[in-house]
Design a protein around this nucleic acid. Structure first.
Ligand SMILES: [Mn+2]
Ligand SMILES: [Mn+2]
Ligand SMILES: [Zn+2]
Ligand SMILES: [Zn+2]
Lengths: 137, 137
DNA sequence: TGCTCTATTTAGACTATGTCTAAATATCGG
DNA sequence: CCGATATTTAGACATAGTCTAAATAGAGCA
């Protein structure tokens, strides 16, 4: 039953090399503990209930700061930002960190196992998303 | 060397149950042949070079129509639409089709093979993205 | 303590992009 | 051709990410 106290949060921010301002502690109190995978604006809405005067820019900047210091990851999974792919058969994707370009990986080029053993889900589709850099090729 | 002709495109649209208006054929001529994984606005910009008067609404509606008829897939992979995850260790994700909720799948729950055999890429990270519905559980 | 420099926060403008509407246009069946 | 339907259009609207200049808060030092 270890509840995350303000002192715990301050400690964590300081160990990450981040000065623990009141705003940053409030943001950390939500976003470092959630399992909700919130968008930046969702974090803003949520933090405002405890800290009404926090600005949108502070929340965005703080999330970026936490990410740079390894306390958060950014996942490109939010609905509403889609790209279109005329290749409708199952395949995987590679996203180039440098250019942002999305490339196809043939289904047979990777092997994914144990998907059918997932509990409590009715799987419609799945794919591997690989991120990195292109080398010579 | 089979170039996609307008007649081919019209045929494909008709077989999909879509009336082949001039705008739809112009949009199809780009988006059904590309390997670029474009966003809707990128499709709009591109199609406008050949068909300057096409409206944004038509492009968005047409992409939706093509998707509903199985000619396109929508991929949630575009940079700029991120969610934040305090769980920074490698893991996979399940996205609920009904609620949009993103849930963690432990790294050990799935098995991914042959990633190290990908040619021409320096892999920084990868994950499986599973989409579907929650059942009882 | 009070001063000065720096880090941080703020409001709000700005941009980009997805959505919606009502009117105009094109196409179809008869 | 005519009336009905399908499609397209311009532009308003909404949402969310970015940027800026000014205000505030905090740290280091006299
Ligand atoms: Mn998590
Ligand atoms: Mn493709
Ligand atoms: Zn693809
Ligand atoms: Zn996660």
């Amino acid at each position: 039953m270890s509840k995350t106290t303000a002192a715990d949060l301050i400690d964590r921010l300081e160990r990450a090399g981040i000065r623990p301002s009141a705003q940053r502690v409030a943001i950390a109190g939500y976003v470092l503990a959630t399992s909700e995978h919130p968008s930046a604006d969702e974090v803003w809405q949520r933090v405002k209930t405890d800290f009404p005067m926090v600005s949108r820019a502070t929340v965005y900047n703080t999330l970026q700061l936490f990410t740079e210091h390894g306390l958060l990851r950014q996942l490109v999974l939010a609905e509403g930002c889609v790209v279109f792919d005329p290749h409708v058969a199952p395949h995987h994707h590679f996203v180039d960190d440098v250019t942002g370009r999305i490339e196809d990986i043939p289904w047979s080029a990777l092997r994914v196992g144990k998907v059918d053993q997932l509990e409590g889900v009715d799987v419609r589709e799945y794919m591997v998303v690989v991120r990195g850099r292109r080398t010579r090729g």
